[in-house]
Amino acid sequence: MSNQLVMYEEELQQISNICDVLQRDSNAKAVLVIDKNGQAIAHSGEVEHLDVTSLSSLTAGNVAATGGIASLLAEKEFAGQFHEGEKTNVHISIVGARVILLVLFDERSSLGLVRLRVRKAAAELTQVLEVLVKKSEAGNQPSVFAEITDDDIDNLFND
């Protein structure tokens, strides 16, 4: 299937490190890296009380809707969004046209600081994603599906 996103240990570690640094340097509550289709990839910070799966899906839906608005207005995309809450603010940016960087922050930080740190993190993330895409396309990594048999799939659905 084309356009499949595959994540390997090495790159996930690098992405997690970028999240950790961003979260620390921007004084953010939490940082999430989300695939544009709504799958959570990595996170850092105070996520214990967050529903990461739902947050990822809704953020991707939000970005998709904003992208739809952009194309109606003949814009390529709106690269960033900011939502201001009473306690928590949300900064959303698209990185490498492929993933979404979500930063949750409160009064311990500021929009300016978050923007500044996001710019640096986004540049680093872009590089990791480029390597990841090349690695996926090269297809020289063993695929989990090569080992899976039809019986394995059948067994998953046996009650």
């Binding site: 499949q4 996103l5 595959v6 994540m7 390997y8 996930l12 289709n37 990839i41 989990v144």
Partner: peptide, 15 residues
């Protein structure tokens, strides 16, 4: 687009 995560050993699909 499926998302296969070898690190967390997950296969994610969208229906």
């Amino acid at each position: 687009m499926s998302f296969i995560n070898y690190s967390s050993r997950e296969i994610n699909c969208k229906i």
